[in-house]
Simulated assay, not measured.
Amino acid sequence: MAKVARRNRQLEGQVESLRQPVEEGFVPPTYEDPSIQDAIDTVPQLVAWQYDPDAQDKFARAIEHDELLKVEPAWQNRPLADRLVEVTRRVLAEAAPAPQTQRKDPQAVIAAAPTQSPQQISDFKGGALPNKTEPDYSRMSDEEIIRSLPRM
């Protein structure tokens, strides 16, 4: 009888250890409408973000982009699968690091700059020669300004 009692207590202890609350793990976002999940399933990168706990920020960003595309006239009548492909492209573009441009040596840029003077009017910005004939009114007195004005 003692053996049975000990075995019973051992089994009760095992059952209690199984009843302890299990720490809740990651639960990916789900959708009641199966057509939405079917559309998401057509874009592998989006599915990967949906089920990866470390990529939930990207999945949330994709949802934000989709909400924006829904109201854009160019995307309103497009299929959901096409919209999700565009959403994924935009999120990937945001996450991509900016291309690194090599900084050029200022002295080398100056040395390589053309030293030839303008040959024709189109060489000037705005397509016209700078007008040096206008007086500098900021350095003139009132009488000089009045004398420089054209007479009618």
Rank of each mutant, 00 (worst) to 15 (best):
Q20E: 12
R151Q: 14
G127A: 05
A112K: 04
Y31W: 15
R83W: 05
A95C: 08
F26P: 01
E143H: 03
D123N: 07
G127L: 00
R61F: 09
Q50H: 07
K104I: 09
S138T: 11
S141C: 02
E72F: 10
I110G: 02
V85D: 05
G13K: 11
P53T: 07
L129V: 02
D33A: 13
I110M: 12
L11Y: 02
A60F: 12
T115Q: 10
D82N: 09
I36V: 15
E144Y: 01
Q119W: 02
S138V: 05
D57S: 15
D33V: 13
P44R: 06
T42H: 10
Q20I: 05
R89P: 04
S148Y: 12
L84R: 08
M152C: 11
E24V: 11
W49Q: 09
G126A: 01
P28E: 06
D123T: 03
V27D: 10
R151V: 14
E16D: 08
L92G: 07
L92S: 10
E64A: 14
Q56F: 12
T30I: 09
K132Y: 13
W75S: 14
D66E: 14
D105Q: 08
D82K: 04
T42Q: 15
F124N: 00
V109H: 01
V91H: 03
P34K: 03
P130F: 04
E12K: 08
V27H: 08
D41P: 01
Y51F: 15
S138C: 04
P53Y: 14
Q45A: 15
R7G: 00
T30H: 10
Y137H: 02
Q107C: 00
N131C: 03
R6S: 05
Q116G: 06
E23S: 11
P135Q: 01
A111V: 01
L149Y: 06
R147H: 09
K58E: 11
V27M: 06
R61T: 15
K70M: 14
R90T: 11
G25M: 06
A60D: 08
V91S: 06
L68M: 14
K58Q: 15
K3F: 04
N77W: 01
Q45N: 07
I63C: 11
R139D: 09
T115K: 12
Q37Y: 13
R151M: 11
F59I: 15
P118V: 05
E12M: 00
L68R: 15
I63D: 15
A81H: 07
S141F: 00
P130R: 07
P34G: 11
Y51V: 13
R90F: 03
Q116L: 08
D33I: 12
E144N: 05
A48T: 09
V85I: 11
R6W: 05
D66F: 10
A74T: 10
A112Y: 05
D41Q: 12
I121F: 13
H65M: 14
D52V: 06
G126P: 02
